[in-house]
């Protein structure tokens, strides 16, 4: 970092290295480190998970068993199997149901906030939605356990209320605020000229929303849903508490299931570091990481696609 030898008479260049110069350089370095830290961390985390799980991948891992067998029995004395199918199905069913709950809620809320609410109502709603997003997941899990559970037992006359339905609703409500915020951003990004043009042609507000704004914001809305799915896949505590945590291939919303994330959370503390079981859990982690990474990346690319256009 040397300032080149410049003639002192050049008024545009300065060789002075005063406090401001050092502050400037220091901040430059700091900002650069901050900027690349995200990349370093994400690569580092993936490498860590992969290294922890690689022993399992190299030895006991059987692709067909892992993705094909619903039997997750790492602690069985005679027949240890690592079938993740039931766990994948558990996560997928809960997330799928969550999206059925969250998509209508969040799109409706986003449309109302972005297109209809004005002034104070709008500001109040935006703040409330953000507050909703800040509720800790264990609190949601608690609601699932203590409120939803008896409610489902009574309403549907089933023996257990901790199941796909419970976890799906809880997860849907958890994912909805974030999806609402992102979907609202997408709607806000639609140029006002479109609305004005449609209104001047005699369109009503609903026609403007359905015929102009929603199609124009399509990519952003898809991204919002994808991020919601990513959230659903990664959520641990609430799902652990509300889903019943029993290994099952669900055939109805009233079956208890176990999620990938919940399995890791519940079992990792009980295993010997470096054991086959331990490594298998990290392999589950790799799978989760890849799925959420791909979902988030595609959401991001879709949003960028909107901007480019």
């Amino acid at each position: 970092m040397q300032a080149g030898p410049k003639s002192a008479s050049d008024p545009l260049s300065s060789d002075r290295r005063d406090a401001a110069w050092y502050v400037d350089k220091a901040v430059q370095v700091l900002v650069f480190v901050g900027g690349i830290s995200a990349i370093i961390l994400i690569i580092g985390i993936f490498a860590f998970i992969l290294i922890q799980g690689v022993g399992f991948l190299a030895s006991a891992f059987d692709l067909r068993e892992f993705f094909g067998s619903p039997r997750w029995a790492p602690t069985s004395d005679h027949n240890t199997t690592y079938g993740a199918l039931a766990l994948i199905a558990g996560t997928a069913s809960v997330t799928g149901l969550a999206m059925l709950v969250a998509v209508p809620f969040s799109l409706g809320a986003a449309i109302y906030i972005a297109e209809f609410a004005t002034g104070r109502t709008r500001e109040a709603l935006k703040i409330l939605v953000e507050l909703l997003a800040a509720i800790p997941s264990v609190v949601w899990g608690f609601i699932g356990l203590s409120i939803m559970n008896p409610l489902i037992i009574h309403a549907f006359d089933v023996p257990v209320g901790l199941n796909v339905l419970n976890a799906g609703i809880i997860l849907g409500l958890m994912a909805a605020p974030i999806m609402t915020t992102i979907a609202e951003d997408a709607l806000k990004a639609v140029p006002d000229g479109y609305r004005e043009a449609a209104e001047a042609l005699g369109a009503t507000r609903w026609q403007i929303v359905f015929r102009v704004v929603l199609p124009a914001a399509r990519n952003g809305l898809v991204a919002a849903v994808l991020l919601g799915i990513g959230r659903g896949f990664g959520e641990t505590m609430a799902v652990l508490m509300a889903s019943g945590h029993s290994i099952n291939l669900p055939t109805s919303p009233f079956d208890s299931v176990r999620a990938l994330t919940a399995t890791i959370a519940a079992e990792l503390g009980e295993t010997a570091v470096g054991s086959e079981h331990y490594q298998a859990l990290f392999t589950l982690g790799c799978l989760l990481f890849l799925v959420t990474f791909v979902i988030n990346l595609s959401a991001d690319l879709i949003v960028r696609g909107v901007r480019r256009r």
């Binding site: 000229g193 479109y194 043009a197 001047a200 005699g202 369109a203 015929r211 102009v212 124009a216």
Partner: peptide, 28 residues
């Protein structure tokens, strides 16, 4: 608005096809 049409400062066609832009008024 049906009887009084408006053209704006900046061209503001809707993000639809040329054809759908023309038909938009009729459709709504």
């Amino acid at each position: 608005r049906k009887h009084v049409g408006m053209v704006f400062q900046r061209p503001n066609p809707l993000p639809l096809s040329v054809r759908e832009n023309i038909l938009f008024g009729l459709r709504v």
